[in-house]
Design a protein around this nucleic acid. Structure first.
Lengths: 222, 222
DNA sequence: AATTGTGAACTCGTTCACAGCG
DNA sequence: CGCTGTGAACGAGTTCACAATT
């Protein structure tokens, strides 16, 4: 029976970040790290960290903290979050090229299993040492490799067509970097990451924080 | 007095996404859109959409929905979320180049105000039609332009040094794309977007959903 | 009749306080 | 003593149910 009675989604989203911190620590030669230190690195509280690691089942040791290497192992052991799976890259433009060299993907244990594009003039080119394949080749590869993840990095106006093809090919999880918002079937789990939207949210938060400060610190005229 | 009694952060993060949907609709020539339709495009409930738009102060009309153009205006009007501000780009590698062409940034009303890098051999090169400047030139530009936002897209091992320089230069909001987790001073608002971490979270969610399905749909032997 | 608008209930994650342990 | 582990309290955000509108 699974010892993990469903880890809550917010926790799930933080686990990979913990992995990042721990890898840094390991590289620095440290053997132990406290929840306090982990929290400080990421901007959340120590209790949060403990709760999350407890949910994972990663034990710490009083007075010393969490064992760096063992905890990394534990994080990697959790299916999905630790990586080990591969993902297809759809979109062979500049963004796609950048992703092929992104150390973050490797660091989290993922590998780009293949590069695809819709545009005929991009197909067959070499990008980052990989031959770009037509989307038509995807269904077969999904079947043969069992890989169900894809990163969508095409132009926004191609997002709809591409995602439709992905679903048809049997992809079940998609990381959408296009910033375009088209409706997807519920069978496909979509996670959206938009640089533009991210900037906007950041700017909004900044604005909010500033306003708040002005209000209860220095109430000034309209 | 501000008519916005602090919009909650989760809402703030969704507003830019609404903008995306509405722009699509406007391009399609539609004049009205229902909360239901907006929700469907983004994967959340209709009530959520209504609550968010209400928080913004964007009125809808019973029986017809929300006026597309007017709502876009209203979204843009909200300081920050609607864009209009600029942002500096720090990191002139492949990822940086991709960002310079990212339609999502423009779509949300942002502009890259300048490109910077730490590495001397990247400085003075031309990237996407922009001359890459040394980080040393940043403080002066921050002062002159009033722009306080930066996108960090350097190599992960330079993230610490770069972010320190950003703080010193007077940057108050940073969108961190490096996936590296170094501690930042509390004065700097950081929003992290990691492709690797995103993939991992997605894979985790996928795994969780699958397990859940197996459990209460088709309980099979250990 | 369809869709917005919203007070109230509820759910879920975070925070608190402190017990447990090395 | 310092740090983990966790049950309980709290609070924020989401969902529900229904009134209001055209």
């Amino acid at each position: 029976m699974p010892e993990s009675p469903a880890i809550p989604a917010p926790t799930l989203r933080r686990l990979p970040e913990y992995l990042g911190v721990l890898l840094d620590r390991e590289a620095a030669g440290e053997a132990w790290i406290s929840s306090e230190a982990i929290g400080q690195s990421l901007g959340f509280g120590a209790v949060q960290v403990r709760k999350d690691l407890a949910a994972l089942g990663a034990p710490g040791s009083p007075r010393r903290g969490y064992p760096v290497s063992a905890t990394i192992l534990r994080l990697r052991e959790y299916p999905g979050t630790g990586g080990g799976s591969d993902a297809f890259l759809v979109g062979a433009g500049n963004l796609g090229r950048a992703l092929l060299e992104d150390p973050g993907i490797v660091r989290h244990g993922f590998r780009i299993a293949g590069v695809f594009d819709l545009s005929p003039d991009r197909v067959d080119r070499i990008l980052g040492g990989r031959k770009v394949l037509p989307l038509g080749a995807l269904p077969d590869l999904v079947r043969r490799t069992g890989c169900r993840l894809a990163v969508l990095a095409v132009d926004p106006d191609q997002a709809g067509a591409a995602s439709l093809a992905l679903v048809r090919a049997g992809i079940t999880g998609m990381l959408d970097l296009t910033g375009s918002a088209c409706p997807f079937p519920r069978t496909l789990i979509v996670r959206r990451i938009g640089i533009g939207a991210g900037l906007a949210a950041l700017a909004g938060e900044l604005e909010a924080r500033e306003r708040e400060k002005n209000l209860d610190g220095f109430p000034r005229q309209t």
